[in-house]
């Protein structure tokens, strides 16, 4: 069973560039068109189950806007 993960996207930093969305291996991310950040961007979010906490989104994020969590079951590799 794949690990279960989740992310938090900071409204302060996210600019809605979509790089995380196209990089997400699970294809579980999209822009949240129902919300705007204070700067006026639609922020990225996870719209469905399937996040494994792989942190690829955080690796490609130019704004260090994403914090990544994963359910701890054993030792896990950290992000690059």
């Amino acid at each position: 069973m794949p690990a279960k993960g989740w992310i938090e996207v900071s409204d302060l930093y996210c600019k809605g560039c979509e790089l995380c969305i196209s990089a997400c291996p699970q294809e579980v991310m999209e822009l949240d068109m129902s919300r705007l950040t204070p700067k006026g961007y639609h922020p990225a979010h996870i719209f469905t189950d399937g996040c494994t906490g792989c942190a690829i989104c955080a690796i490609v994020c130019p704004d260090a806007a994403i914090t990544v969590y994963r359910e701890v079951t054993k030792a896990v590799p950290t992000a690059a």
Partner: peptide, 11 residues
């Protein structure tokens, strides 16, 4: 490493 508080990556 083990990730306390489930944290994998942060700013």
């Amino acid at each position: 490493t083990t990730a306390p508080n489930n944290l994998v990556y942060e700013r």
